[in-house]
Design a protein around this nucleic acid. Sequence first.
DNA 1: GCATAAAATCTCATATTATGAAAAAACTAC
DNA 2: GTAGTTTTTTCATAATATGAGATTTTATGC
Lengths: 256, 256
Amino acid sequence: MRPTAQPSSGGAQLLDRTVALLDLVADGGVDGLSLKQLAALSGLNTATCHRILNTLVGHKLLARDDKKRRYRLGARMAIYGVRAARGPGIISRCEVALTRLRRRTGDTTHLMARFNHDSVCLDRRDGECIVPTLTGSIGGFVPLGVGPGSIAMLAFLDEDEQDYIIRANLGRYASYRNLTEEKVRQLIADTRRRGYAVDMGGLIPGIAGVGMPIITPGEKPGAALSFTLLCAKAGPGVIERYGALLEEEINAIVGQ
Amino acid sequence: MRPTAQPSSGGAQLLDRTVALLDLVADGGVDGLSLKQLAALSGLNTATCHRILNTLVGHKLLARDDKKRRYRLGARMAIYGVRAARGPGIISRCEVALTRLRRRTGDTTHLMARFNHDSVCLDRRDGECIVPTLTGSIGGFVPLGVGPGSIAMLAFLDEDEQDYIIRANLGRYASYRNLTEEKVRQLIADTRRRGYAVDMGGLIPGIAGVGMPIITPGEKPGAALSFTLLCAKAGPGVIERYGALLEEEINAIVGQ
DNA sequence: GCATAAAATCTCATATTATGAAAAAACTAC
DNA sequence: GTAGTTTTTTCATAATATGAGATTTTATGC
C-alpha cells in the first residue's frame, strides 16, 4: 500500500479523501481499480468510498468500466489535463527549454514531475536516434530514485522525505536491474555533490542519462529536466556539457 | 456567466461545488481567476469559495500566483491529465485513428471533446502543409457550434440541450466571421442530414473542415474527429471521401 | 507618504452534510 | 442452484461545512 495525498491542515476531510482516491486511481494503471481495492488502499469505509467515487464518476472526473466495475480517470480529467498544460504551468514553462536542449544535442529530452512516490513524464522530445527510455511515452512513470530525472528530484528533498520515499519504494527497485537502497543513496550523494544526476548504463544497458531538478527558491523540487542518450556518445566532457546545458536552461526557467 | 457542472443527484454538495470551481478555473484562461471572480461566477459565498480553493491549492490541483492572487490549474492536474491520456480513455482509443487519417490524406486531423459549452482539442496530427486552425494547439477551444468537429457534436445532442448551449454561446459567435444563431442552426440541420459536418471557408478564409461525432450507443456525443484542409484541395468528391474515412474510423472506435 | 477602498482571510455558532455499520442487492463461481 | 464475494442502499448519529461578519492584507487615489 502506498499512502498518498497528505491531509490539508484544517477541515476539509471530504476533499482530502477525494484527492486521495483520485491519486490512487491515477496510480492504478490502465486496468483501473475496483471499489474493494480502492477502499483497502485508501483505508476508507467501503460506503464512503463508493459514495465519493460515484459522485466523481457523475462528474466524469472518473470513469467506470461497467463491465468490470473498475474505476479509472475520466474524460473531464483529460480535458483539465490539456488545459493545465496550456496555462503558465510547468509544462509551458519548460516547452522551449525542452525543444532547445533537444536541438542543441540531438538527444531525447524529458520533463519529469514528482507525483507521490513516482516520477512522471510530463513532456518529451525524441532525439535523432530512438533510444529506449524507462518511462516510455508521456504519462509514463518510474519510482522516485530510478533514473536521472527521478534521482535529481529525490536528491534535493529533505532527508526525512527521502527516507520515507525510499522506504516506500523499496519493493519496487529490484525490478530495475537489481537497484538497491544502497545504490540509490549513493546516487543521491553523488547528485548532491555534482548538482545533477548521471546514469551510465546502470538502468538500461548502453543508455546513459543526465538529469537536473528545477528548484524554485523556497520550494521542494517538483520537476526535473533530463537527457537520455547512448553511452557510446557520452565521451569525455559530454556529460559535463549536458549538465551545463541543463543548468543554463533551468536557471532561465526559474529566473522568469 | 456560464453555468457549468450540474449537481450530482444526492448529497455531495461540497464535491459538486468543488467541480464547479475546477471547471471555472479550467475555463478561466491562462491568466487565472481571482477569488472574487470565482465567487461571482459560481454564486458561492466568498468564504466557502476561499476554503475550497485553498484546499485545492494545498493539493496542487490548483495553483495560485502569489503575485496577482489568481487561481489556475495546478501541477497535479497536469499529471492526472497525462495519466488520463494513457488509460483506455478517448485519447488512447483515437490515437491510431488520428494518425491513420492523417497519413491517408496528408491533412491535419483533430480529436475534439465536448466540455461544458465548448469544444476542446484533446489531440491532433499536423498535416503536410501548415494550416491555421481555430483551436491552435492541444488544449485550445472554441464555443460549441464553431468549427466542424464542434458542430458535429452539437448536432447530435437533444434539441433542448442544443438550444441551451446555443443560447449560452450567443455572445461568442460574432467573433467568428459574424457567425449567427441562424447559421449555426442551419449547419446543425445540414450535419444531421449528411451525418458529418462540413465547413468551406466559412470560418477561416480558404480553410475547409470536415467533422464527425464519436457516438457510443446510448450516450450523448462527447467527442469528434475532424479534418482541416485547404479549400483549394477540396475538389469534387474529396469532402465525401473524407466523410467516409471518418465514418470508417469512428465505426472501428465505437465497435471495439 | 498617507488615507481610503477593495479584496482576501479568519472566526465561530449553527445547521446541514458526510459518515459508516448493517442490511439488501447484484454479481461470480462452482 | 447455491455459497461466497463484491457492490449498493439505508439511516440514525456525529462530525463537518457553512456563511455572516470581523479582521487583516493589498490596491488605489491624492
